[in-house]
């Protein structure tokens, strides 16, 4: 699983809308404790969508704070 972390909920909402409009399945989850508590919420998606999703963010001018990958239930690594 890949997780996108944003600077604020406003960007999470914006990203959610952009992903939905582009047919990318996502979920909004509480930010995993190991990642960052920045804005409480993050977007999770299957790894196969990552590149396309990142392009969409660039296209919509939505700034991303970080991309993380889950190794196990409490192990996360930065995935750029």
């Amino acid at each position: 699983m890949t997780v996108f972390v944003f600077y604020c909920i406003h960007d999470v909402m914006k990203a959610e809308k952009a992903f939905k409009d582009s047919g990318i399945p996502i979920d909004i989850i509480p930010v995993p404790r190991q990642v960052s508590s920045d804005c409480g919420m993050a977007v999770s998606l299957e790894e196969e969508y990552k590149i396309r999703a990142q392009d969409i963010l660039v296209e919509h001018n939505i700034e991303i704070k970080g991309v993380y990958k889950r190794l196990s239930s409490n192990e996360w690594v930065i995935d750029t």
């Binding site: 909920i9 406003h10 999470v12 909402m13 914006k14 959610e16 809308k17 909004i28 989850i29 509480p30 804005c39 409480g40 919420m41």
Partner: peptide, 21 residues
């Protein structure tokens, strides 16, 4: 409460606020 939690009701409230904006 919008923007404070990721449970479904909070998310719906966040979406309403976002849409209004």
């Amino acid at each position: 409460n919008p923007g404070r939690s990721a449970h479904r009701l909070s998310l719906e409230a966040s979406r309403a606020l976002f849409d209004a904006r």
